[in-house]
Design a protein around this nucleic acid. Structure first.
Lengths: 237, 237
DNA sequence: ATTACTATCTTTATCAGACAAATATTACAA
DNA sequence: TTGTAATATTTGTCTGATAAAGATAGTAAT
């Protein structure tokens, strides 16, 4: 019966003000640094109470779209597109399908940056990757210590030199941890099977391909590296 | 001298309330649908005025983390991770490097979903892609009509069946349009060169690989399809 | 003329309190 | 048990007020 519930999507004044302001900013062609009218002016121009305006502005402040210099007025700022994401990423609040979408997203992205990595890789990067890999092995574990795991992949993203990609990876990291943790039992049998078939691709293996600048080999390897997850993702469909 | 300016990152009460609430939600292990205390209770528990609390809540409402059923109370909702992004994506406010990061991000992602596409593709999808491609050609243009261009790639994302990826693509779409429009002149010479070298990969070409379920061929083709941009992106570094 | 100081003004951050309207709850009637 | 009316609750919105940070302008001192 729950599906019958009417979606009370009431559009509040705050919502409307938010939209109007975005239009206003775009129309005016405001750029980062541009000052915007003060609260009194805006609220009276919009015909709403100052409190309503402030609730809308609060949203912009969160996403970094505007900045207020206390008592001096507001200016436009450079919002990081991902800024708004940061705070709301909470695996506990996501439904499972979203969580797995994110896992799949991440895998696709990491496969997709293969070309970038190969174009940008430096000898220094390789040294760094090497020490990360060794650190993982030093722990004498068959699997990677979570830190090494994290560092290795983070370094790969870093090599792309793409800040947005890096930021994205940072943001979804907790989601991935959540999956690994919560669905451990589901991955275990697949993992065992891969080990048995000798299909496990380690960070060390990946690094070998990188060292050889073997893009095709790396591409194949990174796909296999994620196979544990892709097999599971496929099985869910 | 501007760089000397002290970053007046004053943490307001609203910011603090926002953080506290997130902690509270996590600690309580609230799940989508869980009711949360009413405004009076929250504000007095936090020791702030209701207006301050409401500014913080307004942020959560934007990102879809909470929903308020007017006059009945608030409940936790399922935030779309990308929800917060939507409104703040405004290419006019981004600096160039971010814009090109996003372009690069998108290309990596689209290359990365090759495997997903090949795994999921159906005959029906192919028919749809065909009609989109034909529509583009029907316009008799050497390049794609923007609508066909958009539809073709959107369909590819759709085939992955990954809602988060689709949403992401929707959100960054205006940024890509912005680039194409604003930097047209920069791409033109590269484009001409590609045409001269007969290196242009059309949607039609891509579709052929898809029809043949030729993953390797498609992967190579989609990379070439974006070569116009990757060449430019490389040249910027 | 430049600097130092003071007074005043502007503007955001925060608070307090009010009312309307939608919904839930309760009490009562049929 | 069902239908109706009265009451309470809660969000959405408004008004108005105060504090404090900084801008501005004026004045005094060197």
């Amino acid at each position: 019966m729950d599906s019958l519930k009417i979606n009370s999507q009431k559009v509040t004044l705050v919502d409307q003000v938010e939209e109007k302001l975005i239009l206003y900013f775009k129309e005016k062609g405001l750029r980062p640094g541009s000052p915007i009218p003060n609260e009194m002016e805006l609220s009276s121009a919009l015909g709403v109470a100052r409190s309503v305006l402030r609730e809308a502005l609060s949203r912009f402040k969160m996403s970094g779209m505007i900045e207020t210099r206390t008592k001096r007025g507001m200016i436009m700022a450079e919002p990081s597109i991902l800024g708004g994401m940061k705070r709301s990423v909470n695996p506990l609040l996501m439904n499972e399908s979203t969580i797995f979408d994110i896992l799949e997203f991440r895998i696709a992205l990491e496969i997709g940056i293969t070309g970038n990595i190969m174009r940008n890789i430096t000898d220094e990067n390789i040294t760094e990757l090497e020490s990360i890999v060794n650190m993982g092995i030093a722990l004498g574990n068959n699997k990677y210590a979570p830190i090494s795991e994290y560092q290795f992949h983070t370094k790969l993203y870093e090599i792309t030199g793409n800040k947005t990609i890096m930021e994205f990876q940072e943001i979804i990291h907790p989601v991935l941890n959540f999956i690994k943790d919560k669905h451990k039992a589901l991955f275990e049998p697949i993992s065992e099977q891969l080990v048995k078939n000798n299909e496990v691709v380690t960070h060390h293996d990946l690094l070998e391909f990188i060292k050889r600048r073997d893009e095709e080999g790396y591409l194949d390897a990174i796909k296999k590296h994620f196979k544990l997850y892709t097999i599971y993702l496929e099985s869910r469909k």
